[in-house]
Computed example of a mutant assay.
Amino acid sequence: MAVQLDAIRSTAQRVAASHDLDVVDLEFQGGVKFRTLRIYIEKNAVERAKLAEAAATGEVEDLPKGVPAELLSGVTHEDCAKFAQDIGTVLDVEDLIPGAEYTLEVSSPGLERKLSKAEDYTRFLGSLVKLQTFTTVNNNRHWQGRLTKFADGVLTLDLTAVKQKGKAKKAVTEQTVEIALLNVEKANLVAEI
Results as ranks from 00 to 15, higher is better:
residue 95 D to G: 08
residue 1 M to Y: 00
residue 102 Y to A: 07
residue 182 L to H: 04
residue 134 F to T: 06
residue 102 Y to Q: 09
residue 123 R to C: 09
residue 31 G to Q: 14
residue 173 T to V: 14
residue 179 I to C: 03
residue 54 A to Q: 14
residue 109 P to I: 11
residue 40 Y to V: 04
residue 67 V to L: 12
residue 49 A to F: 11
residue 175 Q to I: 07
residue 128 L to R: 09
residue 68 P to A: 06
residue 10 S to V: 03
residue 106 V to R: 08
residue 58 G to N: 03
residue 31 G to V: 13
residue 30 G to R: 06
residue 97 I to N: 01
residue 184 V to P: 02
residue 158 D to E: 05
residue 169 K to D: 10
residue 77 H to S: 14
residue 71 L to Q: 14
residue 31 G to Y: 13
residue 62 D to H: 12
residue 169 K to G: 06
residue 28 F to S: 03
residue 14 R to W: 04
residue 140 N to F: 02
residue 172 V to T: 15
residue 124 F to E: 08
residue 142 H to N: 08
residue 74 G to R: 02
residue 73 S to Y: 04
residue 136 T to E: 15
residue 132 Q to N: 04
residue 118 A to H: 01
residue 145 G to P: 06
residue 147 L to D: 05
residue 187 A to H: 03
residue 103 T to L: 06
residue 50 K to M: 02
residue 24 V to C: 06
residue 153 G to N: 11
residue 21 L to M: 09
residue 148 T to L: 08
residue 107 S to R: 10
residue 184 V to S: 05
residue 3 V to K: 05
residue 65 K to C: 05
residue 142 H to R: 14
residue 17 A to G: 05
residue 149 K to V: 06
residue 178 E to N: 12
residue 135 T to M: 11
residue 118 A to T: 02
residue 172 V to H: 07
residue 112 E to M: 12
residue 163 K to T: 15
residue 70 E to L: 13
residue 100 A to Y: 00
residue 135 T to R: 15
residue 48 R to T: 01
residue 14 R to S: 11
residue 188 N to E: 09
residue 154 V to C: 04
residue 61 E to Y: 12
residue 134 F to E: 09
residue 121 Y to C: 13
residue 74 G to D: 00
residue 50 K to L: 08
residue 171 A to V: 03
residue 148 T to I: 14
residue 119 E to Y: 01
residue 131 L to V: 02
residue 149 K to D: 05
residue 178 E to M: 10
